[in-house]
Design a protein around this nucleic acid. Sequence first.
DNA 1: ATTTGACTTAGAGTTCTCTCTAAGGTCTAC
DNA 2: GTAGACCTTAGAGAGAACTCTAAGTCAAAT
Lengths: 121, 121
Amino acid sequence: MYTISETAAKLGMSAHTLRYYEKEGIISPQRNEAGVREFDEQHILWLQFVKKMRETQMPVTQIKEYTKLFQEGEHTAGDRLKLLEEHQQYIKSQIETLKATDDMLTKKVAAYKEAMKGVLN
Amino acid sequence: MYTISETAAKLGMSAHTLRYYEKEGIISPQRNEAGVREFDEQHILWLQFVKKMRETQMPVTQIKEYTKLFQEGEHTAGDRLKLLEEHQQYIKSQIETLKATDDMLTKKVAAYKEAMKGVLN
DNA sequence: ATTTGACTTAGAGTTCTCTCTAAGGTCTAC
DNA sequence: GTAGACCTTAGAGAGAACTCTAAGTCAAAT
């Protein structure tokens, strides 16, 4: 069992963010007698998944939607699958965009270096 | 010469956004006698570059900084190069993040499909 | 001549995702 | 038993990047 700040540290996010996610229904940790949140390994795994989705620009609303479907049970598997596949499509196209810009920048950087030759040496 | 809405259409962004970029000093179109903005091919090229930077998550503040350096003249080439190289580094690491999540999703999607076999057929 | 539709401005409003504040409760160590 | 470091809440604040509004000007078309 981990407190909110241990969990936050483990995940590299802030306790504030975890409370925010809870308010949004993305995570639902148990509480002890004193009302203090208790996160377990399952929560950590789920949050690692959430983090990956956020790092790849999935909006919080979509993560909420996915979470809600999850809680509704097995019959929502098809909808969840659709969400995941759509996000994967987004990721693939974002990779292409990044690669194209990477190539463009490589050329631009080379041009800069060429132009600066006299200055640098 | 293009009006703001022609330019916006050409670039796939809104006229609002172009005015916002102008306010931020990222673009400085000429004005005609009536005060109407006039964009030329150079502006289009510059905006295409700006768009690529935005699509790859370069913050508007950094684009402003790059623009400012540009206007200050040739002696800022080194600083501009540094900005571009840093952004390229960001792009490369973002590509890695996306690839890793893509792989993770591929597995997850496969697991979903496996679990849903009976339901689908 | 008036309508249509484009343009202008300054500034307000929106959305997203946190991030922080204030006021207070609880646990552990000394 | 009190200091310090945790935790709690509701709700406000922040920053980024637009996005829109209101009030008005202007030129071309009918």
